[in-house]
């Protein structure tokens, strides 16, 4: 099996693990998994899946669960996701 396939599987696996860690109330463990996944993507020159970029914090790297450790609000033409650490991410909607 080639390296890129394994790397993609690892990123997906780490995303699930990071999510489970957030659910279990272990944000630091979640951060470790998210950072590891980013590093794998970087080393293998893969882009991260959309679910990954949308549900992780750019500043503190924690995996975000709306209602748990993230607020999601709709504004004119865009969505604002606010992490518990204060970092805001925006993306447009139709």
């Amino acid at each position: 099996m080639d390296t890129a396939t394994i790397a993609r599987e690892r990123i997906e696996r780490l995303r699930e693990l990071a999510r489970e860690a957030t659910v279990a109330g272990r944000p630091d463990r979640s951060r470790r998994y998210v950072r590891r996944a980013r590093r794998i993507a970087e080393r293998n020159r893969l882009s991260l899946p959309v679910e990954f970029t949308r549900f992780t914090c750019d500043r503190c790297d924690v995996y975000l669960r709306p209602g748990d450790n993230a607020r999601v609000r709709l504004q004119d033409g865009h969505v604002v996701v606010t992490c518990d650490c204060g970092q805001q991410a925006r993306y447009p909607y139709e």
Partner: peptide
């Protein structure tokens, strides 16, 4: 495809 015995040493170990 998830972890196989062949790919284990190159795959994610966390969670196993």
């Amino acid at each position: 495809m998830p972890v196989t015995p062949e790919s284990l040493v190159r795959h994610e170990l966390v969670g196993l």
